[in-house]
Simulated scan of single mutants.
Amino acid sequence: MSDLSGFLRTRRARVDPADAGIPADSRRRVDGLRREEVAHLSGVSVDYYVRLEQGRALRPSGQVLDALARVLRLDDAERAHLHRLAHPPRRDASPPSTLRPELHRVLDAFTATPAMIVDHRLDVLAANRLASLLYDRPAPGYNTARHIFLEADGRDLYGDWEKCTGDVVGHLRHSAGRFPQDGPLKDLITELSEGSSRFRDLWSRADVAERTHGRKAFRHPVAGELDLHQENFAMPRAPGQELVVLTAPEGSAAEAGLRLLDELDEDSGHSVSAIAYGGKFSRRG
């Protein structure tokens, strides 16, 4: 089954017939809409839509795709993903995972809040000191998807682990549509599929999402509960790269927690975990 046909099937199963103006039918045997219902509502023939779901109809027009997006109630990210699946991007090489030197200075300018730059695979390309303390590991070389799905402390760190896993999978599905020829991304998806049943379940749903902003909660071994706000800023000249900044409301417990992290002695030679569990907490100054 092609990515396009699989995406259409999962979206069709998600639509409540009542939302599409179709009366309830106790004899309905499928979740969501039937194929013929999608075809009728979108103005295409049943045969053509069946061929789309079977991967036998090539390069549907933008008009057809927009009609399907409307019937399947796709959001903006899903609509764009549908178009990319139907008309894949040119077979360019994977986007670069290098940074301009000036961007390291930009990260260091964030002195009171965690900030990092990640690529489309969720590899951390660079991070400021506070972000490294938050995640208890240096960058680059850290992949947030591997951490949340495969590493022992991944589930403990995130205050809303189930939501975070869904966000990660939605992002990777979005990236797979943007960069279909990226071999390392395919390898990462395979690795996560083989190592995590949670990932396999979420990936089978074919949900796609573009990260922009939202709540991000942490359970940090030193700083405690951190209820932060995440903003993602796309890097216009570096496709797939994002500047991620985590902030806390002024006067909040989360702001105090970040301040506590910032006061860790960076020359102590101890990781955050060692400080938390070994009692070796020290302050600068």
Results as ranks from 00 to 15, higher is better:
His83Tyr: 07
Ala238Lys: 07
Arg259Phe: 01
Ala176Ser: 15
Thr144Met: 13
Asp108Gln: 13
Arg155Cys: 02
Leu52Arg: 00
Pro140His: 01
Val64Gln: 05
Val169Asp: 11
Ala86Glu: 06
Leu85Asp: 10
Leu157Trp: 03
Val168Thr: 13
Ala13Glu: 06
Arg100Leu: 00
Glu231Ser: 15
Glu231Cys: 10
Ser42Phe: 07
Glu36Gly: 04
Leu172Ile: 14
Phe199Tyr: 13
Gly141Met: 00
Ala13Tyr: 01
Arg84Val: 13
His213Ile: 01
Val50Asn: 00
Glu255Phe: 02
Gly62Leu: 11
Leu226His: 09
Ala223Val: 03
Met235Gly: 03
Ala217Gly: 08
Arg173Glu: 15
Glu255Gly: 12
Met116Thr: 01
Asp66His: 13
Pro249Ile: 09
Ser271Lys: 10
Glu53Leu: 03
Tyr48Trp: 08
Asp187Pro: 04
Gly224Pro: 12
Pro140Ala: 00
Ala112Val: 12
Leu188Lys: 14
Asp3Ile: 01
His83Thr: 04
Glu194Gln: 14
Leu150Gln: 08
Arg211Val: 14
Leu125Thr: 07
Gly154Lys: 10
Asp3Thr: 02
Pro101Lys: 03
Lys280Ile: 12
Lys163Pro: 07
Ala20Glu: 01
Gly183Ile: 12
Gly159Met: 04
Gly159Arg: 05
Leu172Gly: 15
Ala126His: 07
Arg28Cys: 06
Leu150Ser: 05
Pro239Asp: 10
Leu243Ala: 04
His81Trp: 09
Gly240Ser: 09
Pro249Met: 11
Ile148Met: 15
Ser2Pro: 15
Pro138Arg: 00
Asp207Val: 11
Glu37Cys: 09
Ser42Pro: 02
Ala256Pro: 02
Phe199Asp: 10
Ala145Phe: 08
Ala18Arg: 11
Ser271Phe: 07
Asp16Ile: 10
Leu202Ser: 12
Leu185Phe: 09
Leu188Gly: 15
Gly62Asp: 06
Ala145Met: 07
Ala234Leu: 05
Arg14Gly: 05
Val106Gly: 06
Arg56Thr: 06
Ala209Cys: 09
Thr247Trp: 03
His174Val: 04
Ala145Asp: 08
Tyr158Asp: 07
Ala238Pro: 01
Glu266Lys: 06
Arg155Asn: 05
Asp108Ser: 11
Arg137Ala: 00
Ser273Thr: 11
Ala206Glu: 14
Val168Gln: 04
